[in-house]
Amino acid sequence: MSKKMFWNGLGFGLIGGALLLQLMLGVQSPPSVGKETVSKESQPPVETPEISKKYTQAEFDQKLQARLKEEVDKIPKPEAPKAEIVKQTAVYITPGLNSDKVVEMFQQSGLINEPTALSTEIKKRGLTSSIRSGVHIFKGEPSVDVIIETIIRKP
């Protein structure tokens, strides 16, 4: 590539870029000297908008309160409270766990407060070997009987 072609390309690129920039910015040309301009005297009188009116503090407070009330009325009212959400707890019993470990898991998950009651009930019913492994789901705060019935059924 010759130097002449390089300088021509650079020059045309700069000129084209400047023209595009002028078009983008939308620069308006200054008014010409020979053209007539419209004077303020020939324009019809403009009514003073309410914005330029001066208010007393009491009028201002009154208008402000009215606008605030309008805005508060636009806010949607909250819906009626939905039904209470029931807590669900899932406990995974791994194969081979003995009943004491299972009771300990239930205490850690928060399903029971007194582990000895559940442990003695399982032993009294003779269900220590009947506990099924898998995921068992409990809704709310189940009783000892519900927990025992759930863990001896297949999950």
Rank of each mutant, 00 (worst) to 15 (best):
V102I: 15
A66T: 01
I93A: 14
V91A: 05
L10E: 00
G110C: 05
F60R: 08
L111P: 01
S2A: 13
A18W: 13
K54V: 04
L19E: 01
V103N: 02
E36S: 09
E149N: 15
S143T: 09
T128L: 13
Q108T: 04
P76N: 09
V103M: 06
S29D: 05
A90I: 15
Q22E: 07
L23W: 11
V38Y: 10
T94W: 07
G13F: 09
L25S: 13
L14T: 08
G26R: 01
W7L: 13
I93D: 11
V103D: 00
S2L: 00
G17E: 01
K4D: 11
I147K: 04
V102C: 09
L23H: 09
I93N: 05
E114M: 12
V72Q: 00
H136V: 04
L19P: 02
P49E: 10
M1K: 05
K3T: 12
K101N: 13
T116W: 09
F60A: 08
V72A: 08
P30Y: 10
D145A: 13
S129K: 14
G26C: 07
K139C: 06
S133R: 01
I148R: 07
S99M: 00
S99T: 04
L127M: 11
S2I: 03
T150E: 08
H136F: 05
P49W: 11
S39H: 06
E59V: 06
Q65K: 15
V144N: 04
L23T: 11
Q28F: 04
S130M: 15
A80R: 02
M24C: 10
I137K: 13
D145W: 01
E149C: 14
E79Y: 04
P31M: 09
P155K: 10
R125A: 05
K53M: 07
G11Y: 04
S133H: 05
I15A: 12
Q107R: 08
L111R: 02
I85C: 07
P155N: 14
Q107G: 02
G134T: 08
F60C: 00
F106K: 04
T116M: 10
V146M: 09
R125M: 07
P76T: 03
Q43H: 02
V102P: 06
K77R: 01
T120Q: 12
I85R: 13
G34S: 10
L23M: 15
L10M: 06
T94R: 15
R67L: 04
N8S: 11
N113C: 03
S109E: 15
K123P: 09
V103C: 05
M5P: 03
P78A: 15
A117Q: 10
G34N: 14
A90V: 15
G13L: 06
G13M: 02
H136L: 09
D145T: 10
Q107I: 06
P76L: 08
A117M: 09
I152Y: 00
S32H: 12
L19W: 03
E59W: 08
Q43E: 14
Q57G: 01
E121V: 02
E41I: 08
L111D: 03
F6R: 05
S133Q: 01
I93Y: 00
V135M: 10
G96W: 04
N113T: 12
F106S: 01
T120E: 08
L21M: 10
T48Y: 02
V91Q: 03
P76R: 03
T48C: 07
